[in-house]
């Protein structure tokens, strides 16, 4: 393993795993500090919200003490980091239960939503990208460009409401809200919200793939394959998609980040009890530990997925790692 020295510190620069861990820790610390500080800067006090409009100053002070919200910013930050170092994210000040319990309840819903969304995105984006790459001046390509602009620029809450109106209310081919069970049976509840998310992601993924496939089409090995008579799926997968896929993998962490962001709106519109809904409630209730917990979880998750994508990219296309 090669390493370099910075001051007295020996940094492992060649070990992807160590780089990933170092990056994850750095991001986790940054995310923790930013979310902690932002919540304290936001106007609002969970003690007042809990006590309602009849609160007296004395009651508010006592409630703040009970909730562990007393002390200066630095004292509170110190307490929180100390807890976190022991693997304790603290208790929700609103619900009075451990933050980890609340996140653990919500995460499966969000992960399933993300899984279906990514699957739909890939299923839609890959054929579209191949088609548009091979027919760059066709009507299909023009239609894709128009629709891509439309879906990318339309907010998810609007697309969500429109989808609900059309699919759930008019056509009655989707449930109005909620989720029952887990995948695969939960697909009936997840396909519409996932489609809403996918509609915003497909144009992004497809565009990157189109650019990559267009480059690949200029490669000599593609012409050789054609001359050799390679056809069908073998040609599409081995000579077009696979060599072109590396740039899209680097998009994965962006996509996962976008999915978390979209989940906030989409879960709310479709009444799915995932991390997005949990986050909105936590922010409204100024539930500091819960907000910090969700942001920390999401941040680390995105970093880990990004790191995973980096590793896979290197495996698929070793040139990237050089």
């Amino acid at each position: 393993m090669q390493a370099r020295r910075v001051g007295g510190l020996r940094l492992p620069t060649r070990s992807p795993l160590l780089r990933i861990i170092a990056r994850s820790v750095l991001v986790a610390v940054s995310v923790t500090w930013v979310s902690f500080s932002l919540m304290r800067l936001t106007p609002g006090d969970p003690a007042i919200l809990l006590l309602g409009d009849q609160a007296t100053d004395e009651l508010i002070a006592r409630m703040r003490e009970q909730l562990g919200l007393n002390g200066t910013y630095l004292e509170q930050l110190g307490r929180y980091l100390s807890q976190l170092a022991q693997g304790d994210m603290g208790k929700s000040v609103v619900f009075g239960v451990p933050v980890t319990t609340l996140i653990a309840q919500a995460v499966p819903v969000t992960l399933q939503l993300m899984l279906v969304s990514i699957t739909m995105t890939v299923i839609l984006a890959v054929p579209i990208a191949v088609y548009v790459s091979l027919n760059p001046k066709g009507r299909g390509a023009s239609a894709f460009l128009v629709l891509a602009s439309l879906f990318v620029s339309t907010p998810a809450f609007f697309t969500g409401l429109l989808a609900l109106l059309i699919a759930a209310v008019w056509l009655k081919i989707a449930p109005v809200a909620g989720i029952v069970g887990n995948l695969p049976e939960a697909i009936t509840y997840l396909w519409l919200p996932s489609l809403v998310i996918a509609l915003a992601l497909v144009p992004i993924l497809a565009r990157v793939l189109i650019a990559s496939i267009t480059d690949t089409l200029r490669e000599e090995f593609v012409e050789v394959a054609i001359v050799r008579g390679v056809r069908g799926w073998t040609f599409a997968w081995r000579y077009l998609i696979r060599p072109s896929i590396a740039p899209t993998l680097s998009l994965l962490s962006y996509i996962v980040g976008t999915l978390f962001a979209s989940a906030v709106v989409v879960e709310l519109v479709f009444n799915l009890p995932g991390t997005g809904t949990l986050l909105v409630g936590a922010v409204s209730g100024r539930d500091y530990p819960l907000v910090q917990g969700i942001v920390l979880f999401s941040g680390v998750f995105v970093v880990v997925i990004g790191a995973f994508a980096d590793i896979v990219t290197v495996r698929i296309d070793p040139r990237v790692g050089r």
């Binding site: 739909m120 299923i123 839609l124 054929p127 989707a174 396909w191 519409l192 599409a236």
Partner: peptide, 23 residues
Amino acid sequence: PLRASRAAVGLVVVGLVLAACTS
């Protein structure tokens, strides 16, 4: 050569939507 594969992808997409629409 890709015509058949496009049809296959199309079928997969339609199948997924139909499966979901059983809701």
